[in-house]
C-alpha cells in the first residue's frame, strides 16, 4: 500500500472481485430497485383499504396475500422497503455527518478536547440505546423522522470513534509530517490527507450501521414508535401480524423475510468491503 490513499476506483474494483461483496451487492441493488419502483408502480394502491378483501392468503390476484385491511401485501412490502432504506440511510448520514468531523477534530487537536469528546462518547455509549430511542420518540412523538433522529444519535459516537482511530493511525505517517513541515494547517491536512485515507474505513462502518439501522427501525416500528400508518413499514406489519399469526402466519413470515434479506445483503457488502480493505484478513479466506 502506498502512503497516499488507494484510488477509490481501484478499491471498488477489488471489492467486485470479492464473492461476498458481489452477492451482497446484487441483493441490495434488487431491494433498492424494488423501493424505487414503488414510487412509480405497485400492484395495488396501498392507501385504499378494502376491508371486504381482508386477510386473503397468497393467490394469483395477490401474490403475497392481503393484510387485515385488505391491502395487497406485495405492494406493502415494496413501499415498506422505501421506508426502511430511507430511515437507515439518513440515520447513517447523521452519524457520519456529526461523528466523523468530531472524531477527526479530536484526533487533530488531542489534549483536553480529545478527552472531552471521548468522554461524551462514553456517556452516549453507556445509555441503553433502545430505551433511549423509545424516550426520544415518546417526547417528540412517534414517526419516521423521530426514529431517524433516535437511531442517528447513537450512530454519532460509533463514527466518531472509527474516524478518530483511523485518523490517529495516519497522523504520525511521513507524508503528514511533510505536509505539516510545508506549513499546512491541521484543518487543511485533515481535509486533504486524513479524510481520503479513512474513507474506506468509514465505508465499511457505514454499511454495518446501515444494516443495524434497518434492524433498529424495524424494532422501533414493531413497538409502534417508527413510521406511522398509513405509511407501510416492515416492523409495523410484523406488529399487526402478531395477533393474527394463529390464523394467517404468512402475515408475519413475509415482512420478516424482507428484513432478513435486506440486512443480509448489506452485511455481505460490509464483509466484502472489510476483506478488501484489510488484505491480511483476505489472505485468510
Amino acid at each position: 500500500m502506498s502512503d497516499e490513499a488507494l484510488p477509490r476506483t481501484g478499491f471498488m474494483a477489488q471489492a467486485f472481485a470479492n464473492r461476498s461483496f458481489v452477492a451482497g451487492f446484487v441483493i441490495t441493488a434488487f431491494i433498492a430497485a424494488v423501493a424505487l419502483l414503488s414510487f412509480f408502480w405497485t400492484p395495488y394502491d396501498v392507501t385504499r383499504l378494502i376491508v371486504a378483501d381482508r386477510m386473503q392468503p397468497p393467490s394469483a390476484a395477490h401474490l403475497l396475500g392481503t393484510d387485515q385491511f385488505g391491502r395487497d401485501m406485495l405492494s406493502m412490502i415494496m413501499v415498506g422497503a422505501r421506508n426502511s432504506i430511507a430511515v437507515a440511510l439518513v440515520a447513517v448520514g447523521i452519524g457520519m455527518g456529526v461523528g466523523v468531523p468530531l472524531g477527526c477534530w479530536a484526533a487533530a487537536r488531542g489534549g483536553y478536547i480529545d478527552d472531552v469528546l471521548m468522554r461524551f462518547n462514553d456517556i452516549v455509549f453507556a445509555f441503553p440505546a433502545l430505551l433511549s430511542a423509545i424516550m426520544i420518540t415518546a417526547i417528540f412523538g412517534p414517526g419516521a423522522v423521530n426514529a431517524i433522529i433516535a437511531i442517528g444519535i447513537f450512530n454519532i459516537p460509533v463514527f466518531a470513534r472509527v474516524a478518530r482511530a483511523g485518523a490517529l493511525a495516519i497522523w504520525p505517517r511521513e507524508f503528514i509530517l511533510a505536509a505539516r513541515a510545508a506549513g499546512k494547517g491541521k484543518g487543511l491536512i485533515t481535509a486533504q490527507h486524513i479524510l481520503p485515507n479513512i474513507t474506506n474505513l468509514l465505508l465499511v462502518q457505514g454499511t454495518i450501521q446501515f444494516a443495524l439501522g434497518i434492524l433498529a427501525e424495524a424494532g422501533l416500528s414493531y413497538v409502534g414508535l417508527g413510521a406511522q400508518p398509513p405509511m407501510p413499514s416492515w416492523g409495523r406489519m410484523l406488529f399487526d401480524a402478531q395477533t393474527r399469526m394463529i390464523v394467517a402466519p404468512y402475515l408475519a413470515i413475509i415482512p420478516g423475510m424482507a428484513i432478513v434479506i435486506t440486512v443480509l445483503g448489506l452485511n455481505l457488502i460490509g464483509d466484502g468491503l472489510a476483506d478488501t480493505l484489510d488484505p491480511k484478513l483476505r489472505r485468510r479466506r
Binding site: 424495524a218 424494532g219 410484523l238 415482512p255 464483509d271
Partner: peptide
C-alpha cells in the same frame, strides 16, 4: 451471516 441478519423479535414470533 444469516443469524446476524435475523431480527430477534421476528425470530421470537
Amino acid at each position: 451471516q444469516f443469524g446476524v441478519a435475523v431480527p430477534n423479535f421476528w425470530f421470537a414470533l
